[in-house]
């Protein structure tokens, strides 16, 4: 039987067991890299940030409190790494720029988009930047609202209303009613 995250974490903390940490990296690298690719919009940069995320996680692993999942903790570090990198480099590309471009999308484009029907690749465009991140964290990654609140840095109430609004928008535009 595979060891649980908790037992691997405890081995990493108590025995400084790098093999246990390696197992944790293997388990969670996909989600962390995927999340950073979504945030950064650049796979190479995302992978660099993912490496920094895991190095930081190793350094800070003793501070991990099992309040939420280990994955949520990692995603929080990943988001902080992304924000730190953005501040450092002063880059206006990536997530922020894409988000800004999307918020200036005018109504006619939305109408046109609506007229084209449910294009699965563009369905995220109907959501605001925060709504999109929250919906991905909750539905794409499967975090609880509480964990999504920690990862995004948004209050729990805001997360819940983003989810509610996001669901309504998706339902309205694409008729996701489970038919």
């Amino acid at each position: 039987m595979a060891a649980t995250d908790e037992s691997l974490i405890s081995r990493a903390i108590v025995d400084h067991d790098t093999q246990a940490f390696d197992e944790l990296v293997q388990r969670h690298q996909s989600r962390v890299r995927g999340w950073l690719r979504h945030l950064a919009g650049d796979p190479a940069l995302a992978d660099d940030l993912a490496q920094e995320t895991f190095l930081r996680a190793w350094k800070k692993i003793a501070t991990y409190k099992a309040k939420g999942s280990f994955e949520a903790w990692l995603l929080t570090i990943a988001r902080n790494e992304f924000l730190q990198n953005k501040r450092k480099s002063g880059r206006e590309t990536g997530h922020l720029e894409r988000l800004q471009a999307e918020t200036t999308t005018d109504n006619s484009e939305s109408q046109e988009y609506h007229g084209e029907g449910a294009d699965a690749d563009r369905f995220l465009e109907i959501l605001g930047p925060d709504e999109r991140d929250i919906m991905i964290l909750v539905y794409g990654i499967g975090l609880s609202h509480n964990e999504a609140s920690h990862v995004s840095g948004l209050p729990l109430g805001t997360v819940k209303s983003h989810v509610r609004r996001g669901v309504l928008k998706v339902r309205e535009k694409f008729g996701v009613t489970g038919r």
Binding site: G34, H38, L124, M135, I136, Y139, G140, I141, G142
Partner: peptide
């Protein structure tokens, strides 16, 4: 359906 849609983003 939501999980499938948003899961595609990650």
């Amino acid at each position: 359906a939501m999980q499938a849609m948003f899961g595609r983003e990650i």
